[in-house]
Design a protein around this nucleic acid. Structure first.
Lengths: 125, 125
DNA sequence: TATTGTTATACTCTATAACTATA
DNA sequence: TATAGTTATAGAGTATAACAATA
């Protein structure tokens, strides 16, 4: 199972590198929602890392002009992370690169691919 | 697909933390073969990272007494990485923790789990 | 000359603890 | 008092370039 992800790791690294982003920066950008700004704390949860860590990751994304720290009206402590127009473009390219089926799976029969998709859909609820 | 992996990440982190290893150190230890020492370069390939990087990772594992740099008789440039008896124990615990089925998959029907296993087996060749 | 692994360097990721400003 | 985010710090991961030893 993990073997499958292991094999695809180079593709993830390449996708981030093409956008000139570190793997973590790419991951963070993917986790954000261009439609709806999310607080730093939520990003920390999505990345499974400490809040202090997110500060630096967002600093670098913001310096690149890909995200923006917005104020939240209901609570002046929280900073809502918005994806800038340029961020949306980079994010789109990242998703496009990763939505291609992993090569190991692309080699399966159409029936197997369909069955796999259905099973995973049930697994993820 | 990646969503599945994402959900299991905390378990991977916890497994490494329980052994008091960084995620990368745990990964490296898993990639090594207790039966047959492997050169640094092969580990770099398995980890998808630069050789210069592996030097530090192995330094820390060696300092913990989990691996050993052995000389290779056929080529005096290469250093063969052997897993020490203590390394074998830690490695065994890591594998045990990770071989439990991911919770999303454990919730599937027996038939789905069987089908998934068969499909993945074909995918991995 | 080419290859294996190390060192030097610079940057990123990571958690802990202490801090600011809000609530 | 408690929470959201930052800063300071120290350690770990990362790639590039230059290097030593060996092939």
């Amino acid at each position: 199972m993990w073997e499958l992800f292991q094999r695809e790791k180079p593709r993830m690294l390449a996708a981030a590198a093409e956008a000139d982003l570190s793997p973590m920066q790419a991951h963070a950008l993917r986790m954000l929602d261009p439609e709806e700004p999310r607080p730093m704390s939520e990003l920390a949860g999505a990345l499974f890392c400490d809040a202090s860590n997110v500060t630096g990751i967002v600093d670098r994304l913001e310096a690149r002009g890909l995200v923006e720290r917005l104020g939240a009206e209901h609570d002046r402590r929280v900073k809502a992370l918005a994806v800038t127009p340029e961020g949306v473009q980079v994010r789109g390219r990242l998703f496009a690169r990763m939505q291609d089926a992993p090569s190991s799976i692309a080699g399966l029969s159409a029936a197997d691919q369909r069955a796999l998709r259905d099973i995973l859909r049930r697994a993820l609820g």
